[in-house]
Design a protein around this nucleic acid. Structure first.
Lengths: 332, 332
DNA sequence: CATCGTCACTAGCACGTGCAAGTCCAGGTA
DNA sequence: TACCTGGACTTGCACGTGCTAGTGACGATG
């Protein structure tokens, strides 16, 4: 117990140089010349002793930690979102940053995590409210990613708007002319739902289709059943769903109402989450380019951190339609 | 820009006391007597200036940060697991700790997060391997929750073993005598699958049922279809699934094979994830007591951190069977 | 030979805390 | 009066870094 931790001073003593030299070697400090012999000796000794720089000390010196804090809203994490992050982490790591994700809970009176971690950048999936921004400022955090002065949510990015257009076009190409939009009832996701709905509307408009019939769809409160009944009566044959969960709810309600899917009602989801593939009938959906989005997210964060070049607004965004049974030509 | 951050020294100067006094007031340091007048003056001044202690400095002094790092395996996060954590966070917060969750990726050559955060406790959902333990030790982390010296995984807790017994009993009570177990094919979850399988086997044994026919079930590779065909031929009528996803895969395969669910094959899942409620037919499942598990988890972590009393091994564990259509008496 | 520049380092400050040890003084004994 | 006690502070060190401002030695230049 209580093996004191190995410090740069230990390495210095052991290598027969000063502590400063160890620092220069470890950080490749520009403008410092170190002989190859010394460099090797220091490196070897550090390795041998198992030296790890003490993060708290580095952070203290630096004024902030090399962390990027991602604040997620407390809605059920979209499957795709999770995949983005897994892609982003290595990219950030390469630049020396670590990604910590933090799910914000509604009734949260606990101190927000940015106070405890003092990250270099805080990234929000949605823009922060004034209270949050104030709290960050008070902790000395200046790099906030939906820039509070100019709050463009990630939900406005092409990544979000590409999908719904594909959904509409897919149904159009299969011959559907009267379309509806299945929205999530959960108010917490309304921003994203609205963003996707807006794009779907635009796409429908451009194809000369009438307005979309928008209904909340939830499998728990009967809203899905009501929506399906209403759509049947209105002669609607194609449904664009906010995501795969709402798509599943819509398909489920249709089946329970005795409708054939896709015979009487075709439904297309969004995100390619597992439920879409597993449902019977399998649900057509939109798959986003997770790797690309992840890299883009990382680039955006690093732009804020380092000031390095910002990626083009539409780079790395690719959405593909995955056609399955729920819109397929052959009913199940 | 560059508003210097408010330090304890600023507060001290402003309140007309020494920096140490500020420290004593802020931390209620035991053994130090501070007059009420001074205490108030310091507190007021701190409030007025918006003083926040600098975490990095505190961490440096203290030797570690007041964080609890939860390392999750890189399997798809179970829905229920997420709910546990949401319960645990406030409980930990109350004790002054913050919870950071960290998903470990397989091909991860990036430095593990514990090196960067130097948390006080690292908690793993599964026991850590020697390399990880070594790496933690090297960072001065001594509090590791599945104690490396005595690794009892969280998967062995009653929380995990209560559910499968309920699943078996449920099918038994509905008259099923020949049961199978649907396992997840993903090798990453095998520990948990095995744990649940073991309990299910025990329960079946105690009811005088024969051995369970165990098959991997995945909706992507045809294994679900093979398993279902095999079960039909073997006269099996009830399936205990590892979780709701495998249950859904099994039900889906059964439907595609022309079997009635639950008429020909009854399936019960585990975790009460959204897919279970949304599937058609709706899938019977086991709901765990998330709040209780969350509190238990928090208590376990605090036990390691503070040495405070450890909760009884079976406290806060409650599993309920949620009967739905996939095992219901009335076929859809 | 004096001066200059470069190389290869070292001395030491600053970051903001927590806390041990010390100081000062009012009041209580012997 | 001399001595002690305890309240209410203050002084100052330690934590482990990053990095600025040196310092000596050595070779090149005028």
């Amino acid at each position: 117990m209580s093996e004191r931790r190995v410090t740069a001073a230990d390495v210095a003593r052991s290598a027969g140089v000063s502590r400063a030299t160890v620092g220069f070697v470890m950080n490749r400090t520009p403008g410092q010349t170190i002989s190859e012999a010394t460099r090797r000796r220091v490196l070897d000794e550090a390795e041998r002793l198992g030296y790890r720089p003490h993060r708290a000390a580095q952070d203290l010196r630096r004024g902030h930690s090399k962390l990027i804090l991602l604040v997620l809203p407390d809605w059920p994490i979209d499957f795709s979102m999770r995949r983005h992050l897994e892609e982003a982490a290595p990219a950030l790591d390469e630049a020396g940053y670590s990604l910590v994700t933090y799910t914000r809970h509604a009734a949260d009176r606990t101190r927000p995590l940015w106070e405890l971690l003092s990250p270099e950048v805080v990234v929000g999936y949605l823009p922060f409210d004034d209270a949050d921004v104030g709290s960050m400022r008070a902790c000395g955090i200046t790099k906030i990613v939906p820039d509070p002065a100019d709050p463009i949510a990630l939900t406005d990015s092409p990544a979000v708007t590409a999908g719904p257009a594909l959904q509409v076009r897919h149904l159009y190409e299969l011959g559907h002319r009267r379309l509806a939009f299945a929205a999530a009832a959960d108010p917490r996701v309304s921003a994203l739902v609205d963003a996707r709905l807006r794009t779907a509307r635009d796409a429908a408009d451009r194809l000369g289709l009438g307005d979309l019939d928008v209904r909340p769809v939830d499998h728990r409160d009967g809203s899905a059943d009501r929506a399906v009944r209403r759509w049947r009566d209105a002669g609607i044959t194609g449904v664009v769903a906010y995501n795969d969960d709402t798509a599943a709810a819509a398909v489920g309600a249709a089946l329970r109402a005795g409708l054939a899917v896709p015979g009487d009602l075709a439904v297309v989801g969004h995100d390619d989450s597992p439920i879409a593939a597993m449902f019977v009938p399998a649900i057509s959906t939109v798959r986003l380019d997770d790797a690309g989005l992840g890299r883009r997210f990382a680039a955006e964060a690093l732009h804020a951190a380092d000031g390095r070049a910002r990626p083009a607004a539409d780079s790395g965004v690719e959405a593909t339609l995955v056609a399955r049974e729920s819109t397929g030509p052959v009913p199940v």
